[in-house]
């Protein structure tokens, strides 16, 4: 479902003396449907960079990143947009929303853009928000004023609203209490059971051991920098 072939990335900082930083060198791996793979490595190893390359918000200099039958490295912007709408979900660490939009609409939006009716998408949003223990009185408010943990849960609800065939999860269990962590892990297990290919970053080792089938150490692909 997700397949990386000889993928490399460098950053060129034009305004800092054109410094060129090699961050990822020659990565190849694939993730099958129903499989969950953890990216591991020390902070700064390039886990989030690799994940953003797979989502397409970081440009990849060389190689192929195939999601289903589309190569995101070569794809036109509109193809990437279509893949993100239908196939590839991403739960980032931070929630980014239009101010003033109610939480319920924020969570329902991915379904609305797929053309699902307002009733059906709202019903799904309500079910997810309820499952993730967001009190009902907050549903009509904008999540911009919520606590960090609440925002994180709204973000997860939004990410799981549509049954994406492929998903990227950036620390989905960070800053959650035991009860909500359990809910999120079961959502991941459900997604696996329906055949989603998942790539995740988990600092929480117990969570990683529970949902992930294997681990990929990203520091293997990071060019060694002379200290």
């Amino acid at each position: 479902m997700i397949e990386l072939t000889n993928v490399s990335k460098t950053f060129t900082l034009h305004n800092q003396g054109s410094a060129v930083i090699e961050v990822i060198n020659d990565v190849s791996f694939s993730v099958a449907a129903g499989e969950c793979v953890a990216l591991t490595g020390a902070s700064g190893a390039g886990k989030s960079t690799l994940m953003r390359m797979i989502y397409g918000n970081y440009l990849t200099q060389a190689g192929q990143i195939r999601i289903g039958d589309v190569d995101l490295v070569q794809a036109e912007p509109r193809q990437v947009i279509a893949v993100r709408r239908e196939v590839l979900g991403y739960v980032s660490q931070f929630l980014r929303v239009v101010p003033r939009v109610p939480t319920l609409d924020v969570v329902a939006e991915p379904l609305r853009t797929l053309g699902v009716s307002a009733e059906v998408s709202q019903a799904r949003a309500k079910a997810l928000l309820g499952q993730l223990n967001i009190p009902e009185r907050l549903w009509s408010l904008s999540p911009t004023t919520f606590s960090g943990g609440e925002q994180q849960r709204v973000n997860i609800a939004r990410g799981f609203a549509h049954a994406y065939p492929a998903m990227l999860l950036d620390e989905p269990t960070a800053s959650l209490d035991a009860k909500n962590r359990e809910v999120v892990l079961s959502l991941i297990e459900e997604a696996k059971a329906r055949g989603a290919a998942i790539i995740g970053i988990f600092h929480d080792e117990a969570a990683r051991d529970r949902v992930c089938d294997r681990e990929i150490d990203v520091s293997r692909f990071t060019p060694k920098v002379a200290a």
Binding site: L13, H14, G56, L59, I81
Partner: peptide, 21 residues
């Protein structure tokens, strides 16, 4: 030119990098 979040998160041209930063 490109996807909005790609240009904003990983700008390639010197001027775009200056603009975003």
């Amino acid at each position: 030119a490109g996807l909005t979040d790609q240009v904003l998160d990983d700008p390639q041209h010197a001027y775009s990098q200056l603009l975003v930063s």
